[in-house]
Design a protein around this nucleic acid. Structure first.
Length: 699
DNA sequence: ATCAACGTTTAT
DNA sequence: ATAAACGTTGAT
């Protein structure tokens, strides 16, 4: 084995050479211009490298073997130069190494030996993100100022000394963003304000660095971020899930257009906004109050007062301030602040209140942070013991889910050829199909009310987060992204958001179990992330009204990945498992339809409404002999397709499974033809007209 | 000692 | 700005 290994290496290396030619020359042979040791790795400045928690969902996954980094690994035939973890396995909550000790007492973290939550916090190791010191909070003899816990990274805070001195340093990225700067399609960059940092490239020259960093910060905040695509107003289509109302769509500006100018990219920026502008930290009364609420209410699930929205199909939490389903009005600074605060608290709460997120996190306390921190400061009551048990159970559950996910991907891959298996469930039985939303609350009064419910929900159970709805959410922040990853939803709605390609790519790469993805009204620039990422279990894709999505782009979406090594070439379409495809409002032609017919063997729901190029020939293609769509198609929406005529109806007679044909507002389709269709079909399949030109199978 | 991979530097 | 490389740390 060892012998053949070296052989392989050589072989692969030469092969890699060919591939690399375009990318990068072979590493130089000369004296390695290697990494310099941090010059100031002095006692307190020495920053411990973190290591994976081995408990989170990511850590529990097996290597995908397909991502960029896997392909580099020797075990997958790569050269092994990159030495990075599989993209699917990037730890969500990296921990301090076991060898880390308190700089004061030289002992390790002792929280495991303690019961009381306050004690746990006081005896766990906390690493300061500014001075890098690792201490037991208890070993600090500072009484007047408290540390500010970073909820996004276990055992991380701004120690009382730094906090008290008003220092603000480079903060640590939150979990899930750890290696992002190193990823193709990465979301984050290292927060190095360029030049001046050359001197302090090694994190630890605490004070001076931190102060100057703080001074530089605002500049970064100013960086505008636009979509790069034109921001022209486009028609906002009807909600895809609703029955199609009148096509009286006057083009209206996308709500986010006006907000697009500015977009925050970094966790820190958000934190900054909070702490900088409003000084809202976790010891701020507002949060204390919130957290208190969470604590007192978390067990009380019945206290829900949420309204049912969207025909009860999805339950959302809407604020009183929200109008017309648009969140676009949060632009006012105050409002925005409060929203930021809420979001922040949301994630914080979820981490702290220990739903099964506990299993996602490394240290004994998943989010050691806010909870422990605020309790320490507030002297809250110790937690009931029952909770600990529940967490344990949850941890096992999560592990179980993770295993299940891995095998499910495998299974799906294996079963692609004969795809007659029962459809994947979009919602687990444990859940009522609830969709969760983040919200803006403008008025304190409503706020408190809704907040109750929202926190309650958020904190209850991770399994409730099988659907996450950010529809029309105009600013997708890293915090939100990391919150999504933590919850591993099965369904994700990002419609009419200005999510960027990087963000989407980052998300998709970390949501291997995603079944439903809604990207309606996003830019093609963003949607194109789907071209390079794989979504093995995706069964429902909504790309309606995606600007710039035409035949050429559709081809890119449907074509198999091109970058696989020979021998492992995957010729299958990335979206081959899609059963529900929504293409309303796109300028696609039969070229795309041919591809769809060929690639999506299980397509059962197809929305082509408002597609001006779709005509009878298109329908002919979809229903032609030899196509799988002919038998798989159950529900087709051709409303407002003005080139479709009565003739199409004769084509649909070939479809073995057809249940619904929506031809509403097709100018060239007559009621008579519909009635004739019903009459002729009645022998085998009873249809009826539930609305003008809307044909539905009865019973 | 070996393997995995973190976090920085270097190349493009 | 981004991707690749790689010295070195951490786990076993």
């Amino acid at each position: 084995m060892a012998l053949s290994l070296s052989g392989d290496e050589e072989e692969y290396d030469s092969e890699g050479e060919q591939q690399r030619a375009a990318n990068r020359p072979k590493p130089k042979a000369g004296p390695s211009a290697a990494v310099k040791l941090p010059s100031n790795r002095s006692a307190s400045g020495a920053r411990r490298r973190r290591t994976r928690c081995r408990k989170c969902e990511a850590c529990l996954r097996t290597e995908c073997g397909e991502c960029h980094f896997c392909k580099d690994m020797k075990k997958f035939g790569g050269p092994g130069r990159m030495k990075q973890s599989c993209i699917m396995r990037q730890c969500i909550a990296p921990v301090l190494p076991h060898t880390a000790v308190c700089v004061v007492c030289k002992e390790a973290g002792k929280e495991d030996t303690l019961e009381d939550e306050d004690d746990k916090f006081n005896f766990m190791l906390m690493e300061c993100s500014i001075c890098n010191e690792i201490v037991h909070p208890n070993c600090l003899k500072v009484s007047d100022a408290s540390g500010v816990v970073n909820d996004e990274l276990p055992n991380c805070w701004e120690c009382p000394k730094c906090n008290h001195a008003g220092k603000s340093g480079k903060q640590k990225r939150g979990p899930g963003f750890k290696y992002a700067s190193n990823l193709p399609g990465s979301l984050l960059r290292e927060q190095k304000p360029a030049k001046e940092d050359a001197a302090d490239a090694t994190a630890a020259t605490a004070a001076a660095t931190a102060v100057s960093a703080a001074r530089r910060r605002p500049e970064r905040d100013e960086t505008p971020r636009s979509r790069g695509e034109d921001p022209q107003p486009r028609p906002q289509p009807l909600a895809p899930l609703l029955p199609l109302p009148l096509p009286l769509l006057s083009p209206r500006p996308r709500p986010e257009d006006k907000l697009r100018k500015k977009r925050k990219l970094f966790d820190d920026d958000e934190e900054e906004e909070l702490s900088g502008r409003k000084k809202e930290k976790c010891d701020e009364p507002y949060f204390s109050k919130l957290l208190h609420q969470i604590k007192t209410e978390e067990e009380d699930q019945d206290a829900d007062e949420e309204e049912d929205g969207d025909e009860g199909r999805e339950r959302r939490f809407r604020s009183g301030a929200e109008t017309n389903g648009s969140l676009g009005d949060e632009a006012e600074p105050d409002d925005k602040d409060s929203r930021s605060a809420l979001l922040h608290a949301c994630v914080r709460a979820a981490a702290a209140v220990g739903d099964s997120d506990q299993s996602l996190c490394s240290s004994p306390r998943a989010g050691p942070s806010s909870e422990a921190g605020s309790e320490t400061q507030e002297r809250g009551p110790p937690r009931p013991k029952a909770r600990r048990k529940r967490r344990l159970a949850n941890r096992e559950l999560s592990r179980e889910l993770s295993r299940a996910l891995n095998s499910e991907i495998q299974e799906t891959e294996n079963c692609l050829a004969n795809e007659n298996r029962q459809p994947l469930k979009v919602e687990p039985e444990t859940e009522n199909g609830e969709t969760h939303r983040l919200h803006t609350h403008t008025h304190t009064h409503t706020q408190t009310q809704v907040t109750h419910t929202t926190w309650n929900r958020w904190c209850c159970d991770k399994r409730l987060w099988t659907k996450i709805d950010l529809n029309r959410c105009t600013s997708i922040t890293p915090l939100m992204l990391s919150g999504i990853i933590r919850r591993q939803p099965l369904a994700l709605d990002l419609s009419w958001t200005n999510i960027s390609k990087k963000q989407l790519s980052w998300l998709i790469n970390r949501l291997p179990g995603l079944r439903v993805l809604r990207l309606s009204g996003c830019s093609w620039a963003a949607v194109s992330a789907l071209c390079t990422s794989s979504c093995p279990l995706l069964c429902s894709l909504d790309v309606q009204w995606v600007e710039g999505l035409k035949d050429a782009q559709m081809r890119d979406l449907l074509s198999p990945p091109t970058d696989n090594r020979p021998g492992q070439l995957d010729n299958r379409c990335k979206l081959r498992n899609v059963r529900d495809l929504r293409l309303a409002g796109l300028d696609i032609t039969d070229t795309s339809l041919r591809l769809i017919c060929r690639q999506m063997a299980s397509l059962s729901t197809l929305d082509l409404s408002y597609c001006n190029h779709i005509n009878d020939q298109s329908v002919n293609l979809l229903t032609a002999a030899g196509t799988t769509t002919r038998d798989s198609l159950m529900d087709i929406n051709l409303s407002v397709c003005n080139r479709v005529t009565d003739h199409s109806l004769t084509f649909f007679k070939r479809c073995g499974s057809i249940c619904q044909i929506d031809l509403r507002f097709c100018k060239q389709v007559t009621r008579t033809a519909c009635e004739r269709f019903i009459a002729e079909m009645s022998v085998s399949v009873p249809f009826r007209l539930t609305e003008d030109k809307l044909l539905q199978k009865t019973c």
